[in-house]
């Protein structure tokens, strides 16, 4: 038990070090940099040209890709516990996983046939 927590203590230390490093760099930068505020300096940087205001409504196609990503991410999560126990689960586990993936491939084929994956 303590062994388990000790392993995750390393993760916590790493997160703490990352936060401290960012804080340190930004803090030191704030201390030593000159401060001459001008309105122009606070404009969002956009490859040298002045930004065109607001935010454009993004294409709904991006949302569909995100949705598909969530679904296949959930599928991947189910594959992990199968992959680490591949040998004890044996042929039966393999058949189950093949059925699982085939059902989802059906959905992917459907999306493909409907032209959702094509960027028109």
């Amino acid at each position: 038990m303590t062994e388990f927590y000790r392993e995750y203590l390393a993760v916590a230390v790493l997160i703490g070090a990352a936060l401290a490093l960012v804080g340190l760099m930004l803090g030191v930068g704030k201390l030593i940099r000159p401060v001459r505020p001008q309105a122009d300096k606070y404009i969002t940087y956009e490859a040298g040209s002045d930004p065109v205001g607001g935010w454009g409504q993004s294409n709904v196609r991006y949302y569909v890709y995100a949705l598909l990503f969530v679904i296949f991410d959930v599928e991947a999560v189910f594959i992990f516990p199968w992959a680490v126990g591949l040998e004890p689960l044996g042929i039966f586990g393999l058949v189950e996983m093949v059925v699982f993936i085939l059902i989802l491939v059906l959905g992917l084929v459907y999306a493909w046939r409907k032209g959702v994956l094509r960027w028109a």
Binding site: E75, P88, L89, E96, L104, L106
Partner: peptide
């Protein structure tokens, strides 16, 4: 994994149907 593929086989396969339904729903949308 051993719980999922030994004890809860049917719920596990039902999950794939659920994900399929979500996928088809996303495509229709």
């Amino acid at each position: 994994g051993s719980d999922l593929f030994r004890t809860f086989i049917v719920p596990f396969e039902v999950v794939s149907m659920l994900l399929l339904a979500a996928l088809v729903g996303a495509v229709v949308m």
